[in-house]
């Protein structure tokens, strides 16, 4: 499956929150097939940057272009997995997943199998451990045809084997012409990526 080649262009992007300038006139372009790690201390504005690029926050200044469309019109090309669980505790793993991905049962089961959650498909998510819940949320990556992935702390609560599986998935996504932005405080195990270091501007 090859994705449509897209560019993600960030121009003059600035953001101020609670009277603090988080980033100022940020500009970069990501070509199809690139991975960007956004690094920085706690509170440096990593999540704010990712959520702004994803279109969840109103852009205060500057622009985010997906291809040649502004992000507000191209959000369906983005897959965003944030801090929040993205799964509902009261629903079973499979029901949660059916809702999020909307594919047929075989590809859903394939995705759940890829993250090692197939044998739990009948369990309620609230009965699972945190890492297992995280695996369920990440299973969406196996069913997505969005070219741009924005993953905020995807490695949190994952064990070593799942980190390997996730790295492989991200690598194959960009090999197919996708783009991936992520944050992590752990030492990234991905082989090739660019880094953007956010620091307090003032």
């Amino acid at each position: 499956m090859n994705l449509e080649p897209l560019k993600l262009k960030i121009a003059r992007l600035s953001c101020e929150r609670d009277y603090r300038l988080l980033f100022d006139s940020l500009a970069f372009t990501l070509d199809a097939g690139s991975i960007l790690r956004v690094a920085g201390k706690n509170g440096a504005g990593k999540t704010t940057l990712l959520r702004t690029i994803a279109g969840l926050y109103e852009i205060q200044e500057g622009e985010v272009l997906v291809g040649d469309q502004p992000v507000s019109e191209a959000m369906h090309r983005i897959l965003y997995i944030g801090h929040r669980p993205q799964v509902t505790g009261d629903l079973s793993v499979l029901d949660n997943f059916k809702y999020m991905a909307g594919h047929d049962d075989t590809s859903l089961k394939f995705a759940l199998d890829s993250v090692g959650m197939l044998s739990y498909h009948d369990s309620l998510v609230k009965e699972l451990s945190q890492g297992q819940g995280r695996r369920c949320a990440l299973a969406r990556l196996w069913c997505s045809d969005a070219p741009i992935w924005i993953l905020d702390e995807p490695y949190t609560a994952l064990d070593v084997s799942m980190i390997k599986i996730l790295d492989k998935k991200i690598a194959s996504h960009v090999a197919n012409g996708g783009i991936c932005l992520f944050t992590t405080h752990q030492v990234p195990t991905l082989s090739e990526f660019q880094t953007l270091e956010l620091g307090c501007v003032n």
Partner: peptide
């Protein structure tokens, strides 16, 4: 409320 705090509601924005 619960969809908001679970982050399900923000996923609505990514639907076409």
């Amino acid at each position: 409320q619960s969809d908001f705090s679970d982050g399900i509601l923000e996923q609505y924005l990514f639907f076409d």
